[in-house]
């Protein structure tokens, strides 16, 4: 991990962070992945309509920091059957762009393609990710991650791994 200055994240640092986050998720490194989040974290996978208000419409995932912790605790029991055994995952993050800033957060957009293999078969997941990154104590942290799946309006297979 490289320490970074409080402001002015450059694209290379951002990419390194996103790749690391992706690797932790791919490799089910729940502790390392959880440590990336800020206390006001929001992890969101919309269903159907991106523009819908997640407080009045259901989402696939809409986790605050607390619920991220619960989700990970469940995975760590080893008895979350939809991830026990865990899926084999590899994802590619690409088209990384700095979209702007929101307060002290840097807003970043990227595309991803993820291949999931488990006994049920192979699934291809793809979509657009929006991240909000914040420098806390000299390290980049994740405050917000929204994963907008290309097929979010279609029936989705089980999505119990970290996307």
């Amino acid at each position: 991990m490289t320490a970074v200055a409080d402001a002015g994240l450059d694209l290379r640092q951002i990419e390194q962070f996103l790749y690391r986050e992706a690797r932790y998720a791919d490799e089910h490194d729940y502790d390392a992945w959880e440590a990336l989040w800020t206390d006001d974290a929001l992890y969101w996978v919309p269903a159907g309509d991106d523009a819908a208000d997640p407080r009045s419409q259901v989402s696939v995932i809409y986790d605050n920091r607390n619920r991220i912790a619960t989700r990970l605790k469940q995975l760590r029991t080893g008895k979350r059957y939809s991830q026990s055994p865990p899926s084999n995952l590899r994802r590619v993050i690409s088209n990384v762009e700095i979209l702007g800033t929101e307060g002290s957060d840097t807003v970043v957009g990227a595309n991803f393609v993820l291949v999931e293999s488990r006994t049920r078969g192979m699934e291809i997941w793809a979509g657009r990710v929006t991240y909000k990154l914040r420098v806390v104590d000299g390290e980049i942290r994740l405050a917000y991650k929204k994963v907008s799946l290309v097929n979010k309006d279609q029936p989705l297979p089980t999505l119990a791994f970290l996307i």
Partner: peptide, 8 residues
């Protein structure tokens, strides 16, 4: 912010 996609 341009992360919201256009509504179909």
């Amino acid at each position: 912010m341009s992360d919201e996609q256009d509504r179909p």
